[in-house]
Structure formats: C-alpha cells, structure tokens
Design a protein around this nucleic acid. Structure first.
Lengths: 210, 210
DNA sequence: AATAAAGTCAACCAAACGTTTGAAAAAGTC
DNA sequence: GACTTTTTCAAACGTTTGGTTGACTTTATT
C-alpha cells in the first residue's frame, strides 16, 4: 500500500465530511418520510434524525426544532405540482396524473393529505403557491367545459374538487379500497387501473356532438 | 317550603349522582370529538376527561386506557352507516347522503378519515361490519348499472370508490375547497351545493335510452 | 344499621419526547 | 500554523403525557 496512486489530474469534487447542505437535505428527506407516514403529532424527531443518519440536535440547529422542520418541508411541498401545471393534455390525462401522484411520491402525497386533515393553521405557508396552481386548474376545466368536455350545468370549481378528491382515494381511503376491491391500494397496478377508470368516467361526461 | 309537594304517583326515574352508563357515554362522546378533531396521536386523555366532565382516571377504569377507549369508539363507528344501508333511493341520492355525512356527524366522519389515513392496524376492529356494508353498496351499484344508470365499461367497485372519495372532499381536502371555491368547507351550504353537483354528475352518466 | 361493592377523584409516578448545553472536531481565514 | 467560525455529537434537562395509587363517597346487599 506504500505506492501512492498517481494523482488524478482532474480533482474529484472533495468529499467533505461535513456538509450543511447535504445534512439539511437528508433531514428534509427523512422528515418527508416520517411526517408523511405518521403525521405531525405521531412523528418522532429521533426517528427522523436516525433515518437521516445524523444527530437529532441538528434539527434544532438547522430548522429551529420539530415545528420549524415541518414548516420548511411544507413550504416547498407544492413546487412539484406547480411545476406540472404546464400541461396541454386532455382532462382525462390530468386526472390520471393526479391519481398516480401517490405512486410517484408516496410520502409527499400523504403529507398533503395530513396537512389537509389537520387543517389547523389557515394561514399556513405555501398556500399562495397552491392557490395559484389550483386557480389555473379551474380555468383549465372551464375552458374544457366550453369546448364541450363537460355538461354546462356543472360548476368547474366543483368539478375540479370532485376529481381531485376522487383521485386521492388510494391514499385517503386505503381501507375502503381494500374492503371493496381486495387490491393493495399502494400498488402501481391499482393506481393504473383506478386512473384508467377515472379517465373513462371523464370521457363519458363529454357532451355528445350534434 | 315545609309543605311537601304531593308525592307524585309515578316515580320519576331516579336521578342518580353516579351512573356508570352515563359516564361511559359521556366519555365516548368526548372521545369522538377529541379523536375526530386531532387524530389519535394528538388527542389528549386529559382533554377528553375534561370535555366529559369526569376524572381522567375513569378512562382507565372503564376502557383500560387511551387505546382501549379508541377501540371502543371505533368498534361501533360504522353502525350508523350500516343502519343507513336499508335504502331504496337512486344512487344520486346515496351520493348526496354521503356528501352530507360530514354535516350530520362531523366528528364521526373525520374520525373515519383519520382511521383511514393512519391505516396502521390492518386487523382493526369493526372492519367486518364495514366490509359488509361496502359489499352491499357495490352490489347496489352493480344493479344500478344493469338498470342503465352507469355505462357498462365502468367497474362497480371503482365507481363506488370514486364517489365515496369524491363525497369526502369537504373533510379530506378542506384547504383545497377553500382555495378553489372560497367557501367554508364545513358549512351546510357547501355540503348542499357540493352534493347537488355530485348528484348531477351521476345523472349525466346515465346511459341514454334508445 | 352494618357491611360490602362499585364509582369517582386528587395527587403522584415513570416513561417518552423535544430542546438545551457544553464540548469536540472540521473548515475557513489571516 | 494559530485563531476563529461552523458543523456535529453525546449527555443532561425540563416538560408533557398516559397511567396508577389510595382514599373517599355513593349505591347495593343483608
């Protein structure tokens, strides 16, 4: 082991033993998993720290405690959804997209449901981004309705609500899913089949052309 | 005050100072409110006892602790729903019924959602009653489909899931409701309007007669 | 009336939890 | 290379929480 390897001409990016950015990212990741799985009250900071592989004190150091960590997490929660609002797909596909969000990022989707069920702070952070996203969706539904995708006597706002709620069945009502269909609500197969049925239902709402 | 009132011939039911049944009922009521509002983990037994107006020790005495109380509560949770399954109404009305369950018994409906979101114990109590109720609903949807209320290419099981999830929008996604419609998701007006829209949507799915 | 049983409560306890403290090790600066 | 700041950790702390103990009061039994 005495002969040193020839010094690599291109410096590999230094593997820092200590890296605050990496540590924070690890904590946020672990927090998403823990909060998503158990909700805020049942989540344990020790568990988050263990999952992130760091000392639990760093939660206080970087985020000011459990609550601060939760806030930091939910503040950026809707960015993914907002990013996906640059669509040009038929509404049936949008619904499919929603229905599979539980498969794409299970923890995030569950966190979203916890946040809604708790519904404690009406002035929660990140709501303005969420609101903008939702408003855009409503406008989109309205346009689709004008194009004949939906009957005229249905309100676009309610239509969006109905299909967002319906899309979250696998995560919001897993026990009902199991009892009714016998399938595993978390499986990709179920999400696929469920999204397909939802899309079909949307298709049946189209106003027949004269 | 010396003249005694003429002894009432019909003995009024004795107002007992101590009444285990009444105490238990008060605890169960308070538990439903507390668990429904905050979920199991965030619920506090002291809070439940205070709300019931009794000493918290009685929770251990009668139900064997917090968990026992929760189990006793959820065990009878579906009785109301099961009782309502003696229906003969069109599916649109069933959907309206679902959509307003959050107004009829807000705590119970939220408890149901907590229970689903947690989804910890797959062998939870009371599931057999729930399962029976749901199976009956599926059969009902199937019959309605045969009668032409739904297109043939939609699965009855998925249809039930879709509309159960959609019906719970006000409770499961209150923030989305507020952001999209601006209305108070807990108001009776919203439940009314939302149920109406859901019913209309169901109506549009009916297969046109030849 | 005496006695036993059941019901209720205030005070106390042990465990769990999030946070704080104090110090060590690494990274940055001059 | 010395000095400062940043990052990390282990241990201790104070608080909260669900549960228990033992006494007291009402109800039932004889």
């Amino acid at each position: 082991m005495s002969e040193a390897a020839p010094r690599s001409p291109r410096r590999a990016p230094v593997e820092r033993q200590r890296d605050p950015e990496r540590t924070k990212a690890q904590l946020l990741d672990a927090a998403k998993a823990e909060f998503g799985a158990k909700g805020y009250a049942a989540a344990r900071v020790s568990e988050i720290a263990a999952k992130a592989g760091v000392n639990k004190q760093l939660i206080s150091y970087y985020f000011g405690g459990k609550e601060g960590l939760y806030n930091a997490l939910t503040a950026t929660m809707y960015d993914d959804y907002v990013a996906a609002s640059e669509h040009d797909m038929p509404f049936a596909d949008v619904v499919r997209f929603f229905a599979q969000s539980g498969v794409r990022d299970h923890d995030l989707a569950k966190l979203f449901l916890w946040e809604n069920l708790t519904d404690g702070a009406p002035d929660a952070i990140g709501v303005e981004g969420q609101r903008g996203f939702l408003q855009r969706q409503v406008e989109y539904v309205r346009a689709r309705q004008a194009a004949g995708d939906f009957p005229a006597d249905l309100d676009p706002e309610f239509l969006l609500l109905i299909f967002m709620a319906a899309s979250s069945a696998a995560l919001a009502l897993p026990r009902v899913v199991r009892a009714v269909s016998g399938q595993d609500p978390n499986s990709a197969e179920f999400a696929e089949a469920y999204g397909e049925q939802l899309a079909r239902l949307v298709g049946h709402l189209a106003v027949p052309r004269k």
